[in-house]
């Protein structure tokens, strides 16, 4: 177990390091005019000032030295300052992270719980109307691009209701959980649904397929023969075996979460990491982009390690080696 954790952490660090090199390389290929970004139009004509700023940031040094300095700063927890807003990158991220975390965690809970539940319920009654409806829902949900769903939800549940004088769902913005939990919930419910539906559809299909397979196994028949209730057989015995591929899928989905968050935040005007990353890409705000990419990579690596540990918990045959 310990051996496994050490190895996975090391390979995870390797992956993160490689990603940092790739991101760094992109900005090496097409470096932004940093002095211009920092000083603004007027002062950028002052050659002396430009050189001073460049030297201050170490941008006149060779690329490997710049990369080394970046790594050293990174290991000290210093992510640098935004070229655009001049704020510390950690401050910017600290402000955006709660928004994206609320969005992502809420959506993940919705899609996993309801996806698996719908899948299981349709598998217990194959070819029933319930099952057919679930399959239809899954296929349609699968085919809805996130932003299209977001726009449609906005159109009907915000705009049309708003016209009818019902303001249940706010159209945009974010209210911190600590400030007003109810408003936090209301502001996030449409984004949650938007982000969750496509993934939910995947889980419905996966859970249904796995359950159908497992429910035909001998040990399930044995459990029934022992006189266990159908609910207990389904959720205690069968679901446990069916969860392994679902957990795999979750590991994959975590990697695409930031992408989904970018689109959802764009549609609903949430100022989270997605919006921050888009604006910093447009503004060529290199330190912020690098920080977000690394943060996302760390997140994916940790999630994948957790998924592997979860495997071992679910399936005693798996040894972490």
């Amino acid at each position: 177990m310990l051996r496994f954790l050490i190895r996975r952490t090391l390979t995870g660090l390797l992956v993160i390091w490689l990603i940092s090199v790739v991101v760094f390389a992109i900005f090496f290929i097409a470096p932004p005019n940093v002095a211009f970004l920092l000083l603004g139009k007027f002062q950028a004509s002052n050659q002396q000032l430009v050189e001073q700023v460049t030297a201050q940031l170490g941008l006149n040094k060779p690329i490997p030295v710049q990369y080394w300095n970046f790594l050293v700063r990174l290991l000290h927890g210093n992510l640098g300052y935004s070229y655009y807003s001049h704020e510390a990158v950690t401050t910017l991220i600290g402000r955006a992270l709660p928004v994206t975390a609320s969005l992502a965690i809420g959506a993940a809970i919705i899609w996993v719980v309801s996806g698996v539940l719908i899948g299981v319920l349709s598998a217990t009654h194959p070819r029933s109307i319930r099952d057919r409806l679930a399959t239809l829902f899954a296929l349609t949900g699968l085919s809805f691009p996130t932003f299209v769903l977001g726009l449609i939800l906005l159109f009907f549940l915000f705009y049309k209701l708003h016209l009818a004088g019902i303001d249940w769902f706010p159209g945009s913005g974010y209210v911190p959980l600590t400030q007003d939990p109810w408003q936090w919930f209301l502001h996030l419910i449409l984004p949650w649904i938007t982000l969750a539906v496509a993934s939910m559809a995947v889980y419905v299909r996966l859970a249904r397929g796995q359950m159908l397979e497992v429910l035909g196994d001998d040990y399930i028949r044995t459990a029934r023969a022992k006189g266990l209730s159908e609910t207990r057989v389904t959720f205690r015995h069968a679901l446990r075996a069916a969860l392994v591929p679902i957990v795999t899928q979750f590991g994959i989905d975590v990697a695409t979460l930031l992408g989904g968050a970018i689109v959802t935040e764009q549609v609903f005007g949430l100022n989270g990491l997605g919006a921050l990353s888009v604006s910093s890409v447009v503004n060529q705000d290199e330190p912020v982009i690098i920080a977000i990419v690394l943060l996302a990579a760390v997140f994916v690596v940790i999630a994948n390690i957790l998924v592997d540990i979860l495997y071992a918990v679910l399936d005693p045959r798996v040894r972490l080696e």
Partner: peptide, 18 residues
């Protein structure tokens, strides 16, 4: 692993702007 761990939409946006 690197490609799969990459926040690809962000990267795509970055690449296209560059």
């Amino acid at each position: 692993d690197v490609v799969l761990a990459f926040p690809f939409l962000l990267f795509a946006i970055a690449l296209v702007t560059v």
